[in-house]
Nucleic acid binder design. Sequence first.
RNA 1: CGGGGUGUAGCGCAGUUUGGUAGCGCGUUUGGUUCGGGACCAAAAGGUCGCUGGUUCAAAUCCAGUCACCCCGACCA
Length: 577
Amino acid sequence: MRLSELIGERYKEKPADCTIESHALMVRGGYIKQVNTGVYTLLPPARRITHKIERIIREEMDAIGGQEVLFPVVLPADLWKESGRFTSVGKELVRLTDRMGADMVLGMTHEEAAVHLARDAAKSYAKYPFMIYQIQTKFRDEPRARGGLIRVREFTMKDAYSFHTTQADLEAYYERCYAAYERIFKRAGCKNVIAVLSDSGMMGGKIAHEFMLLTDIGEDTLVLCDNCGYKANIEACASVVDNTSLSDTEELTLVPTPGMATIEEVAGFLKKPHNATCKAVVYQKNDDDGYVISFLRGDLEIHETKLRNAVGAEIHAGSVTPESGIVAGFIGPMGLDTKKITVVFDRSLEGIGALVCGANKADHHYTGFNIERDYGKVAYADVARAIPGGICPVCGKPALRIENGIEVGNIFQLGEKYTRSMDMQYLDENGALQYPTMGCYGIGVGRLAASVCEESHDEYGPLWPITIAPWEAQICVLRADQEEPKRVGEELYAALTKAGVETIIDDRTVSAGVVFSEADLIGAPIRLTVSPRNLVNGMVELTTRDKRVKKQIPVSETLAAVLELKAQLFAEIEGVL
RNA sequence: CGGGGUGUAGCGCAGUUUGGUAGCGCGUUUGGUUCGGGACCAAAAGGUCGCUGGUUCAAAUCCAGUCACCCCGACCA
């Protein structure tokens, strides 16, 4: 490729509206151009990167027995009605009608399509197990796209679906896919990726992992145990606390607490620690606005997804009206109308005594509140956020650490959710009808590209790993207006290209500053600088984008040196070739 | 969907308070001088000032509505 002919320009200034580095660099470098909120055109450099990522994914999926297919983007709503998701999924599923008025959907994920294919193709146990996958454009009408390719509405995704006759077989395959994912991220040069336990969300099923790139700009919150290595999305992490030191025999007492409406104020006023208070958080159900009040220990916070799961309904932050009978700031368990209000007690209150809680009466709290003694037996739920330094739900040590991550891939054990709802059955060895069990496995291709950029860049541009770099080598010709540098540059370009090195040559007659700045934005890991200064001695300069290598090479030995460096850079990422 | 912000040339912005010929930097085109980290000089091209309506002799500027985009939150395989 000649930079003089490459479509798209590179910008000196940081574009407005770019708040994260990978987004800014990919716009500045001429990788992406926004068309709409969360909708981008990929220019050649980005497309070359995603092609390479897709190739790695294909190799690894094929290596675990995957068979590539291509499902339709537009699917009949009937399939989604079968699975129940036509109504259960929110507005992120785009629904439309065709000219005959038939309901259609844009496929945001393809479990239904996979079952549609597989239920006719796998009626005998002898066909199992098998995995089918595709790499395809998805459209999800996200409520809020952001961050360039990190979170978009239209994107390319690899989605895979496996079918099994036993749970054990699914689990064994799940492990193979887990290992394949680790290889994919390693080969793509995405270094700091970990697998965490996840909440299965709308996908259904039980066991699920998300592959997370650890980064401060990540949208997901992760809980990691420094003691035992437990890793989970905070949505899936049990909040464990130790209340044994807080129990006592204090009497239930109504005390005036004028104007003390927050935990901070009440605890200060009564000279109690925050973890000896009972906090109330008000939500409302989305469907009928019914109140949900959750009680938890005063030093903790609610995790809404966990509360949503506990309540079993969609909820939103509640607004307390005078008619509700709820006394904001003084809400407590004692005397609440549980016929009208759904009450959820967090596990952090279990076994605790001598609590301070609201009295459901303005300017009053109780002290000495003991749930079991004063209120009665309750079923506790886990609805609090895990906290830094908190107790690990697996090893029991207070060694939890909180980090942020970008979800670059996920794997789910779906179970029979879709095969049952869509009536997919096979005949087993005994001639009996059985439902197969499923797994599904996703990777966002563009998000992975942006994640690598986010992880590996400097102030001048991306530091692409050679495995996915848009070009492996870039020839920077300084003084392309002069005969000799121009000729040598062209000769090297021809030689490298012929030798299978993906090369882009900057053959423009622009100043050295422009040549180097734009080369940094393009981020080819190998750089050859051809200049009159070096050619005086018959040399060219061979460098790596990250500056680890910087040496003068005789022109005649350049090709061999580049091939050696290329092999070395590949080996660093993929191991011995 | 709630809160905040922004829409003026390909990109970054000024001009809006106080209505009066649409500007600056980068980029682009042409000519010349430079030449190893975003050079310099000269000339030039490029804009329905997001859109609609209103007020006015006159609207980028004032008023009303509307659309789009960005950020925070909600939401999210």
